[in-house]
């Protein structure tokens, strides 16, 4: 039997997902033995035109990381979709937009101005901005268009499975790859983590009564190593986040930021997290509530750290 063909791609991401894949360590050898990697820009030299030349449906599985925020990324997502039997959103950006998804707090114009005109280290007296097309003496030069709004992979093409995480933990990645190699993939639509419950479920910290008078940023306190971080006033997203990561962040004293996405059945992870935070505030007095809430300086960035494009609102109105 021919080995299954696998493609890997990165769109709007930091490259961490490709490193996340390498985290599987020596299992990588098993993977390479079991499958043929036909496209992987970070590791092998296969061009877009080679992918275009492949037959539709000839790739068995595509692991796609990164959000969609340019015409090039959208084009490749559609191309790989056509060529692949199974499309997997790999990592938080492909799944929910991820950190690049926070660009949805702004629009293209604001982003261009910030990046090419306003940043302190930029010197651009002629106010040159990237153009999608430029007529050079040698001919036309083109660049992809930056989108106004970052999209998730599933908002762009049909997606069969999701492997969440920023980046996905090695055990999660391997769980999915092993299922793939052995032909035991779960039902289509599954968010593969191995745990349908929240991160709290895997967290060894002691939980008691959640009543908070003050929220802290991580640098402001040295949390007790035994007690629930949320009870200590750190906005921990564990309560609103799907487990499977083995609660690595809370175990190391850092609040969960939500990279594994919502628990099953929740449509808006950020609103769910926000609800949890509001519920632990220990006050009935509007003024005091206002004061406690003021400690959460950046609600959108805290609650929707990885999920803004996948949220009900999708973007800020700017």
């Amino acid at each position: 039997m021919a080995k299954p063909k696998v493609a890997l791609y990165w769109a709007a991401s930091c490259g961490g997902c490709d490193i996340g894949l390498l985290e599987i360590g020596e299992n990588l050898l098993k993977l390479i033995e079991a499958v043929d990697i036909v496209f992987w820009p970070v590791a092998i030299d296969v061009k877009y035109k080679d992918v275009e030349a492949m037959e539709d449906g000839s790739i068995d599985v595509c692991l796609f990381n990164g959000a969609i925020r340019s015409s090039e990324q959208e084009h490749i997502a559609k191309l790989l979709r056509a060529k692949s039997k199974v499309m997997i959103a790999y990592g938080a950006c492909a799944y929910q937009g991820g950190i690049p998804g926070l660009a949805n707090m702004y629009n293209r114009e604001m982003i261009m101005e910030r990046a090419y005109l306003e940043t302190p280290s930029t010197e651009n007296p002629d106010k040159v901005l990237p153009q999608t097309s430029y007529q050079a003496p040698e001919g036309e030069l083109t660049l992809p268009l930056l989108f106004d709004t970052v999209k998730t992979l599933a908002q762009t093409v049909k997606v069969e499975y999701i492997i969440p995480g920023c980046p996905p933990e090695a055990q999660t990645t391997w769980m999915a790859l092993e299922a793939l190699i052995t032909g035991q993939m779960p039902p289509v639509g599954t968010v593969i983590t191995g745990n349908a419950k929240a991160v709290c479920n895997e967290c060894p910290r002691k939980r008691d009564v959640k009543k908070v008078k003050k929220f802290y940023r991580t640098y402001e306190i040295d949390p007790d190593p035994e007690i629930c971080l949320l009870e200590q006033g750190l906005p921990c997203a564990g309560i609103a986040t799907k487990g499977g990561c083995d609660a690595r962040c809370p175990k190391a004293g850092m609040p969960c930021t939500g990279c594994y996405g919502p628990v099953d059945g929740v449509i808006d992870q950020g609103a769910h997290f926000m609800n949890a935070i509001a519920s632990v505030i220990d006050s009935n007095d509007p003024n005091e509530i206002g004061k406690i809430i003021a400690d959460i300086r950046d609600p959108a960035g805290t609650f929707y750290r990885y999920s803004l494009p996948d949220s009900i609102l999708r973007r800020a109105r700017v």
Partner: peptide, 20 residues
């Protein structure tokens, strides 16, 4: 209603950031 108050205060702060 106190619960509603806490949630709404929080939501309003988020809404402001989201341009609502």
């Amino acid at each position: 209603n106190y619960k509603a108050l806490r949630r709404m205060e929080m939501l309003k702060k988020l809404a402001e950031q989201m341009g609502i």
